[in-house]
């Protein structure tokens, strides 16, 4: 029987708020977000880094929360889907997904939206191929990706 392992302090900024949390050192960021912070907008599809559903932004970069240990995000700024809108006003990427039908069941949507946001932050005028490559790790079973591509292009227009 392995010895019980205590919780450790994690200091992290989540959606602009400083958080100090006691977490198990082997709990993934996905578990911390969903179960400790109750931010259930971050989804889990495979929990093995194979589907992209749990994508969050860590210091602005899309990363897979199912693979990240607390120590890896110590001191980082994390954006989850709950942190994207400005109050009641949707972010342009969210608006574009709504208007262009870039979602159906919506389960891959948080990860998709965040990956798209990170792309547009880095490259405000991506080509369709660049969008595909940036979102390539995010699987969707509903849309056939077409309307998501349209939505990201629309978001680029809205942001320009």
């Amino acid at each position: 029987m392995p010895r019980p392992i205590g919780r450790e302090l994690l200091r992290v900024q989540v959606n602009g708020e400083e958080r100090e949390l006691l977490v198990r050192p082997y709990a993934t960021l996905l578990e911390v977000l969903r179960e400790e912070l109750r931010l259930s907008g971050t989804k889990h599809g495979c929990e093995l880094g194979e589907c992209g559903a749990c994508t969050v932004l860590v210091d602005g970069l899309p990363q897979l929360s199912c693979l990240l240990l607390p120590a890896q995000v110590e001191g980082a700024a994390i954006t989850t889907i709950e942190g994207l809108a400005d109050g009641a006003a949707l972010h342009a990427v969210q608006r574009a997904f709504v208007e262009r039908g870039g979602l159906q069941c919506g389960y891959c949507t948080p990860g998709m939206v965040l990956a798209a946001k990170a792309l547009l932050d880095a490259n405000p005028t991506p080509t369709r191929q660049e969008i595909k490559e940036a979102l390539a790790g995010n699987l969707c079973r509903c849309t056939g990706y077409a309307s998501i591509l349209d939505a990201v292009e629309e978001a680029a227009r809205l942001l320009s």
Binding site: P2, P4, I5, E8, R24, P25, Y26, A27, T28, L30, E31, H44, E47, L48, C66, L69, P70, A71
Partner: peptide, 12 residues
């Protein structure tokens, strides 16, 4: 959800 078995983490 799949979880990690308990383990410690050190930051050398």
């Amino acid at each position: 959800m799949l979880r990690l078995p308990p383990c410690s983490y050190l930051r050398p």
